[in-house]
């Protein structure tokens, strides 16, 4: 009757002790000072961009970029959203915002759907040439965009998607496929082979096993990949620039056009507001889902 004698750790109560305060030594202080200075260097641009976007031009012309707004105004934000000119159209960065969303959604569905299935097939099913194919994908993930850009432009012209949001979305999905497939494959590879064997004996259906067993087990990696993809598609400039047409360019391109190639008097507060508006979606994701974000960028590291 050993069970009765044995103490039950769940029942036993432990005294709670107050946390011991750590001593603040000289080297600790030096390190914290250095880290704080570096943090200031990293944080200052964000601070400057925010305060500038809330000032009026009169104060900006006076200089002193670090000062707080004397008159707090949201006018630059309104102008940036609604009125700023990009090329010949003056309808604000909101056009780009909606274009970016229109690009984002189909390319997320396409790239993640395709890559998850491909990664699953390569990791858990016996495909003889899987090793070779993975190596090709690994190589493809590193290829500079410029080497495939011109043929992709020609091909997207042939299938009549060049210059449309669909064109940009498809190119994003194609370019993301190798890396995302590798990420999914590495995740699925760690699923115990016995679970896969059991599923093969129980069902044997490639799609049923994917839908009922594997997909429900991919929650974590899905969030990581989703964040990685949202950030990289939202922040992309080059693909949007080369594949987007008039009126279908993403937010980064609209922003660059309005800030860099604007004529007449430069309204820095509007520029900064437009830049902030563009940066807010990924920043929001970062500050809310930081843990997954770090996993995502580390997994997607090879994207550079």
């Amino acid at each position: 009757m050993t069970e009765i004698v044995a103490s039950n750790p769940e029942v036993r109560e432990f005294k709670s002790y107050p946390p011991k305060p750590r001593k603040l030594t000289g080297s600790s202080i030096a390190i914290l000072v250095f880290l704080t200075m570096c943090a200031a260097f990293v944080a200052i641009p964000l601070y400057v961009i925010i305060v500038t976007s809330l000032k009026d031009m009169a104060q900006i012309r006076f200089g002193d970029i670090f000062s707080l707004p004397e008159v707090w105004t949201l006018e630059p934000w309104r102008v940036a959203w609604d009125e700023v000119c990009s090329g010949v159209t003056c309808e604000g960065v909101k056009i780009g915002f909606f274009n970016s969303i229109m690009i984002l959604i189909p390319s997320l569905i396409l790239s993640i759907g395709l890559s998850a299935v491909t990664g699953y097939a390569l990791a858990l099913w016996n495909v003889k040439w899987a090793g070779t194919f993975l190596f090709i994908l690994f190589t493809a993930a590193f290829v500079p965009f410029q080497i495939i850009m011109i043929p992709l432009i020609i091909m997207s012209g042939i299938i009549k998607v060049y210059g449309t949001v669909w064109g940009v979305a498809i190119v994003h999905a194609v370019l993301a496929m190798p890396l995302l497939t590798l990420i999914f494959r590495n995740y699925y590879k760690d699923i115990p082979s016995e679970i896969m064997n059991a599923a093969i004996m129980d069902s044997g259906s490639f799609w049923k096993i994917f839908g009922e067993i594997i997909l429900p087990m991919s929650g974590n990696i899905m969030i990581v990949v989703l964040i990685l993809q949202i950030t990289s598609i939202w922040n992309d400039f080059l693909i949007g620039l080369t594949f987007g047409g008039i009126g279908t360019k993403p937010m980064t391109v609209i922003l660059a056009n309005s800030v860099i190639t604007s004529r007449g008097e430069v309204t820095y507060n509007v520029d900064m507001a437009a830049a902030l508006l563009t940066a807010i979606p990924p920043l929001l994701i970062y500050f809310v889902l930081g843990k997954f974000f770090v996993q995502g960028i580390t997994a997607g590291a090879i994207k550079g």
Partner: peptide, 21 residues
């Protein structure tokens, strides 16, 4: 034949239960 068509059932060392079900 496919494993599912062989008329067999198997119990695995690690039990291989589907964790999400």
């Amino acid at each position: 034949a496919d494993p599912k068509d062989r008329g067999l059932a198997m119990v695995f060392q690690s039990y291989a239960l589907y964790p999400t079900k």
